[in-house]
Structure formats: C-alpha cells, structure tokens
C-alpha cells in the first residue's frame, strides 16, 4: 500500500455535482413514471389516455429531459462503482468507455423512440387517436 503523494487531479467535483443535480430532477419525475406504470398495470389507464398523455409535444419534451437526467445519473453512479472496484487504469478506461458508448447509443435510440413513435415506424397499427 506504500505510495507517493501524486498530488491532486482536480477531478471528482463535477461527477459529484451532476449526480446530485440529476438526482433532484429524478426525485420529481421518477415517481410520476412509476405511478403511470402501476396505474397502467392495474388497468386504470386506457390506451387512449396513455397515448394522449405521452405523445403530446410537451410530454415528449419532458420525457426527453427525463431520459437525459436518468442517463447522467446512471453514468455518474456507474462511474463511481467502476472506480471503486476496477483497480487497473487500463481496465477502467476500457470499462468506462464501453459504458459510455452503450449509454450514448441508448440516448440516441430513446430520443428517436420518444419523438418518432416507433409503432408507426414498425407499421404496427394505426394509432388510437388517428
């Protein structure tokens, strides 16, 4: 465990800060998401209601913001875990970058999903509204 003092990297504050900013945003948005999911599960939210509630441009914008807050929170959280348990620099760089690519891919895909209404894209079925 003997080591020299290598000085400070000046890092860490931003991870800590953004983890908390995204946490506050999620604090208000996640209960809404879970409430909607539970009510849908219980049959209290019909397709028509869900469709109107989630495809309105304002709710799409909110969904997109929620997505980014969630991804920031996931990234900062997983980064801390990787830094805790992965002990070589090479492995850390590898794991963190794989995670970053996966999360970025998910961000693009979900943004498309939010705005393009995939049901149409897959030609599934005409939507309830139209």
């Amino acid at each position: 465990m003997r080591n020299k003092d290598l000085g400070t990297a000046g890092t860490g504050f931003h991870d800590w800060y953004w983890q908390r900013i995204s946490a506050v945003f999620l604090l208000f948005s996640i209960p809404v998401l879970m409430g909607v999911l539970l009510l849908t599960y219980n049959g209290n939210i019909s397709f028509e209601t869900l469709n109107i509630a989630l495809t309105h441009p304002i709710s799409k914008t909110l969904c997109n913001l929620f997505l980014f807050a969630m991804l920031i929170h996931i990234w900062t959280g997983l980064k801390v875990i990787v830094e805790d348990y992965v002990h070589t620099t090479a492995m850390r760089v590898f794991v963190l970058n794989v995670l970053l690519v996966m999360l970025a891919g998910f961000a693009f895909y979900m943004t498309y999903h939010i705005w393009a209404e995939l049901a149409y894209t897959f030609n599934c079925i005409p939507c309830g509204g139209g």
Binding site: V36, L37, F47, L50, N51, L54, Y120, C124, I125
Partner: peptide, 8 residues
C-alpha cells in the same frame, strides 16, 4: 411505457 403509448 413509451412503446405502449404509441400503438394499440
């Protein structure tokens, strides 16, 4: 949830 809102 998004998928469910997009199609019957």
């Amino acid at each position: 949830l998004l998928s469910m809102s997009h199609g019957k």
